[in-house]
């Protein structure tokens, strides 16, 4: 039984929590607000918070100057492609681990996870060299494959935990009800697995979108995604806060929205099921 709490206590909790929450969120909020200011307002002292001339000018400038859409498109292709490819490869693997486990299943799973722990910098040069040799440096397909491989252990793992939650009795019930293998897959297993697969896709899309080691080191122009686009702002150039904010807002907005949907999956996916 949860105990009833006095209204005063609840109000105090609310006040403290909202203050802390807004403080943590402030950099994001500030970035979004600044993106609508003029460059002069962006550095005004004291800072203007809400009462300024809202303008969309910065977004236009950013697009014009660096062709934002191309970077966005690269991000979509790389994050989306690597996630989908990963799921395609992982579904059969996770499936057989969950429903036809063998004595080695556990070891294989743990080994897969351990490959995720391999520090990227340790294999940076070999991968770099291989990309040069194969002529795929700054190539979207190469990044799709590399990010897929990086996230494959997490994808397999998440799918495995979701599949394992489908109770065996349901499959037996379907068999008693006269479902053959085909019907079992079509009417019972797939509909039950879809939410898990969707969550897996969501979280891995986010992880791939934000990946910033390989995308920075293996791209220059053609395949560069948003991570690299933002990094190009790292050398200051006169008044650029508002433009930087606009560029940042565009880079994080889609993923912030997706991220809010994936809070639960985040715990499951990133702790490998060790915290529930």
């Amino acid at each position: 039984m949860a105990r009833a709490v006095t209204t005063q206590r609840k109000a105090l909790n609310t006040a403290v929590a909202w203050t802390v929450g807004l403080l943590i969120f402030f950099p994001i909020l500030w970035t979004v607000l600044t993106s609508f200011k003029t460059e002069a307002e962006a550095i005004a002292n004291p800072p203007v918070i809400l009462f300024f001339d809202w303008t969309l000018e910065n977004y236009g400038v950013v697009q014009e100057r660096s062709n934002y859409m191309r970077f966005l498109w690269n991000s979509v292709i790389i994050a989306g492609g690597s996630t989908l490819l990963g799921v395609l490869i992982a579904v059969p693997a996770a499936w057989s681990m969950a429903f036809v486990p063998s004595k080695r299943t556990k070891d294989i799973l743990l080994w897969m996870l351990s490959t995720k722990m391999l520090p990227a910098v340790g294999v940076l040069y070999p991968i770099y060299l291989l990309c040069i040799q194969l002529g795929v440096l700054d190539n979207r397909v190469a990044l799709v494959v590399i990010l897929m491989l990086i996230n494959l252990p997490i994808i397999v793992w998440m799918l495995y935990t979701y599949f394992r939650e489908i109770p065996g009795e349901i499959l037996e019930a379907a068999r008693m009800d006269g479902a053959g293998l085909k019907e079992e897959l079509l009417y019972v297993l797939t509909p039950m697995a879809v939410p898990g697969i969707a969550s897996t896709i969501l979280l891995n899309f986010i992880l791939a979108w934000n990946e910033a080691f390989w995308t920075l080191n293996l791209t220059s122009v053609d395949a560069a995604p948003l991570t690299a686009f933002i990094a190009s702002y790292s050398s200051p150039e006169g008044l650029f806060f508002a433009k930087l904010s606009a560029a940042s807002t565009m880079a994080i907005a889609p993923i912030l929205i997706l991220g809010w949907f994936s809070q639960k999956q985040l715990v499951r996916g990133l702790t490998f099921g060790a915290v529930k």
Binding site: G21, F25, W209, N210, A212, S234, I252, I255, G259, L266
Partner: peptide, 18 residues
């Protein structure tokens, strides 16, 4: 909760530059 979790979804290059 959403406010507190949000920074995790910001890409590293953005948060560093901001």
């Amino acid at each position: 909760r959403i406010l507190v979790i949000a920074p995790f979804f910001v890409m590293p290059t953005v948060s560093a530059l901001v």
